[in-house]
Simulated scan of single mutants.
Amino acid sequence: MMLEGKVAVVTGSGGGIGREIALAMAQAGAKVVINDIGASLTGEGLSATPAEQTKAIIEQRGGAAAINTDSVSEWANAQKIVQCALDNFGRIDIVVNNAGILRDQIFHKTSPEEWLAVINVHLNGSFFVSRAAAEHFRKQGSGAMVHITSTSGLIGNFGQANYSAAKLGIVALSKSIALDMQRFGVRSNCLAPFAWSRMTSSIPAETPEQKARVQRLMAMGPEKNAPLAVFLASDAAKEVTGQVFAPRMNELFVFNAMRPVRGIHRSEGWTPETIAEYALPALKPAFSPLERSGDVFCWDPV
């Protein structure tokens, strides 16, 4: 019961990874606000049914939950989501920013609408809900935020400029929250999940390599990500903030931050020509390869 007495808001918890996190937090003793608009990944078919299903499972297991169906993509809605926790359970201790949509498209065909839709839910939504909870966290001197990022942003992927930009932006947002709110006892961390879910079901599986990657993902259920989310939200992680973690089947990883890895100095300064002649050969061995998540995590999950 690592979350006994705490109240958690889990966005996008009508299914998939969000549902598993909500269930695990309830099992660990938290009262949970299930936020989900019930739409498909393309934004169609709003419904309270997914949230109601999550709530029913929690209550069947003896837990307590409330439902909110507002979209995280608007500031006023984020305040309603947090207010739902206060109205139903009297406080808020945990925010899990999990809500997400996809508008995958090769970059030169990505429309402004596809860009904004993804940024609004993932990045703006993470800011809005975190910001709505921040004042309550500050006043009570405690609080934990768990933001769902992705290796699509941390490493890279094809056809996901909008999603990748949002997910890497969430890492910077989390670090800023950790820096700004540490003095108030508030922690902020990121979790990059590996799981087969709605968010990964659109991954192409045409070539033998793609099919093999999908098979590896399908072996990883969304529930594998829940224990780390519960830990990061608990008092057991009171010294953990500003970090990025990834659970992969039975493996756990921590990611490093962007830091300079090699430098070169020239007392008389640089010209474009001397950069080409001297700096490029010196710095090039430290360049980051143009890789995708599947290139880096290329072994079978264990």
Rank of each mutant, 00 (worst) to 15 (best):
G38M: 07
R131I: 03
A99G: 10
V244G: 06
A51R: 09
P301H: 04
A64L: 15
R131K: 14
Q79R: 09
K109G: 14
N225Q: 07
N189K: 00
K211P: 07
A85W: 04
L123Y: 12
A172S: 15
K80D: 11
S142N: 08
A172V: 13
G169N: 06
A219V: 02
A117R: 12
F128P: 10
S288M: 14
P272E: 11
W115N: 00
E59K: 03
D295I: 15
L168W: 04
L252Y: 11
L46W: 05
A237F: 01
S188I: 04
P281R: 13
D235M: 12
A76N: 03
P272N: 15
Q27N: 10
R183P: 06
I57V: 15
V72W: 02
V118Q: 08
G242S: 11
W115E: 03
G159I: 02
V302D: 01
A192P: 02
H108P: 01
K175W: 01
C298S: 14
N157K: 00
A178R: 03
V261T: 14
G90F: 15
S111W: 12
V171N: 03
V214Y: 04
L232F: 08
S288Q: 12
S267N: 13
Q105K: 12
Q83K: 10
N124K: 15
D70A: 13
M1Q: 08
E52V: 11
T110F: 07
L23G: 02
F287Q: 13
N162M: 03
L41F: 06
R213I: 10
Q140M: 08
Q27L: 07
V186E: 10
L217R: 02
I264K: 08
A26S: 15
P227A: 01
D70S: 13
V129N: 04
T271H: 09
R292E: 15
E206V: 05
A133V: 09
L191D: 00
R262Q: 15
A48V: 11
T149S: 15
A132H: 08
N77H: 07
Q215R: 15
A165E: 06
C190T: 03
F107M: 09
G90P: 07
V261F: 10
S288E: 05
R248Y: 08
G294T: 06
I264D: 11
P112R: 10
P204A: 11
R262V: 13
G62E: 15
R183H: 12
S197G: 12
P208N: 12
A144Y: 00
S197R: 10
S288Y: 11
K238F: 13
G156E: 09
P285H: 07
R198Q: 06
G12L: 06
R183F: 05
G185P: 08
E251Q: 11
P227E: 04
G294V: 06
E268N: 13
R61Y: 06
G62T: 04
L252E: 10
L280K: 14
S293F: 11
G185R: 11
G45F: 06
F137R: 02
G90N: 10
A133F: 09
N120L: 04
Q210R: 11
A99W: 00
A64F: 13
